[in-house]
Simulated scan of single mutants.
Amino acid sequence: MTTQRHRGLTEQAAETAVDQACRLLRLPTVRAQFTDIAEAASREQMTYRGFLAELLMAECDDRNRRRSEHRIKAAAFPRDKSLRAFDFDANPNIDPAAVHTLARCDWVNKGQPLCLIGDSGTGKSHLLIALGTEAAIAGYRVRYTLATKLVNELVEAADEKSLNKTIARYGRVDLLCIDELGYMELDRRGAELLFQVLTEREEKASVAIASNESFGGWTKTFTDPRLCAAIVDRLTFGGTILETGTDSYRLAHTRNRTEHQA
């Protein structure tokens, strides 16, 4: 089969042909930018290959941008928060280098957990959303939820005999961001369902949580000491703890575990 070549086209006919071909091949960026890139190529005396590369790279860049926007939208963040907008000077307890290392998303790729622990107003939620956004931009599937909202959804799903389906839906994302853990007490059933989500997620899936309570204070959220210790272990083993407050939350966790083991 030979390809028919259209020789001797006028400029107007060529532009019409390009427009039609872009519609057929679903190349909206090439269609929108073809004229400008063609004029720039003429001015800069680009080769045909250089001109074609510019067109294709523009299409690829725009597709990546649209895919990132789609993943960010699918994450259901309550508001836009970025690392660029975070005021590190307002909280000297937070190490900018550590945060920007987390923004590379190696921990998401490895399926490791992240805990943002500190007092109210210290930037936990901002960082949680910002790092989740960075993960979405990097190509990972992300989902944001409040701890109480997640538990209520799980309890409702269990009542409606659709718990496995709900857990599977959360298990398909690469990073699950849970905000405001520790703001209210969870009954045993709710705590057990949350633990089930945390433990039954795929091996390479990450969890990031933000909590205003030290690990030692999680007994107010999870009243069963053994279940509390199991949840803390799941959210800290092999992961990163980023303290945004002034208290030593890590030591509080150590004391808490020692007391339960005793």
Rank of each mutant, 00 (worst) to 15 (best):
K110N: 07
G111V: 01
Q112C: 00
P113D: 01
P113K: 01
C115L: 14
I117Q: 04
D119Y: 11
G121A: 14
T122H: 06
T122E: 10
G123Q: 11
S125N: 13
A130K: 10
L131D: 07
T133M: 08
E134R: 14
A135D: 11
A135Q: 11
A135F: 10
A136Q: 09
I137K: 11
I137Q: 11
I137L: 07
A138I: 14
G139A: 13
G139W: 11
Y140Q: 04
V142T: 07
Y144C: 09
T145P: 06
L146V: 13
L146N: 15
T148A: 14
T148W: 03
L150N: 08
L150G: 09
V151E: 06
V151H: 06
E153G: 14
L154T: 06
L154H: 06
V155E: 15
V155F: 02
V155W: 02
E160F: 03
E160I: 01
S162M: 12
S162T: 15
V173Q: 05
D174P: 00
D174T: 00
L176D: 02
I178F: 05
E180S: 08
E180T: 08
G182Y: 04
Y183Q: 12
M184Y: 01
G190S: 08
A191Q: 04
F195H: 12
F195N: 10
V197L: 05
L198C: 01
R201I: 07
E202N: 07
A205Q: 05
V207P: 00
I209H: 00
A210H: 12
A210K: 11
A210L: 11
N212W: 04
E213P: 01
E213N: 04
S214R: 09
G216K: 14
W218R: 02
T219L: 07
T219M: 05
R226L: 06
L227S: 02
C228W: 00
A230T: 09
